[in-house]
């Protein structure tokens, strides 16, 4: 399990670093989250390239989402998404009841206000991965009780 911890520590430090450098400059809170999200985006693009190297071609959007929930999530967070819901019109909600990056923070409502920082990178990962597969989307995350979180993906339909 050591490798998991490595990533978590690195992730936490990245967040601290981004916020600390923001304090010295004049960045608002929103910019830090955005920066983290962009980091995740670029990483996601590369990750997807590597993970889909050997898989067969995806049939459709749902296929892509299933891949994200199963293989992608497993490769990064060592577990699958617990629940995938969709309205079949481009909105998908991924539920993870024990999101790895939040388990160390709290198991209830404590530190709830800091949760968005810790989810920004993961959202970027998803968005980057989808983008490289040709799906343009907006990814947001919601947390009501830690460590469960909902990741909401809105696919931008191409007309």
């Amino acid at each position: 399990m050591a490798d998991e911890a490595l990533f978590q520590f690195l992730h936490n430090e990245v967040i601290q670093y981004v916020y600390k450098s923001a304090e010295n400059g004049e960045m608002e809170n929103g910019r830090c989250v955005s920066k983290l999200e962009h980091l995740g985006f670029r990483v996601g693009q590369g990750l997807i390239e590597r993970f889909t190297k050997d898989t067969s071609r995806f049939k459709d959007e749902l296929d892509v989402m299933k891949f994200i929930c199963k293989d992608y999530w497993t490769s990064v967070f060592k577990k699958q998404i617990d629940n995938l819901r969709t309205n079949h019109q481009g909105i998908y909600v991924l539920q993870d009841n024990k999101f790895r990056l939040l388990t160390q923070l709290s198991s209830g409502k404590q530190y709830l206000e800091h949760a968005p920082k810790y989810l920004a990178f993961a959202c970027g990962l998803v968005r980057g991965g989808l983008s490289n597969l040709g799906v343009r989307s907006i990814v947001t995350a919601e947390v009501s009780v830690m460590p469960a979180c909902d990741i909401r993906i809105m696919i931008k339909q191409v007309n």
Partner: peptide, 9 residues
């Protein structure tokens, strides 16, 4: 001419 398309198009 041969072709190959990745999953990332």
């Amino acid at each position: 001419v041969y072709g190959y398309v990745t999953n990332s198009k």
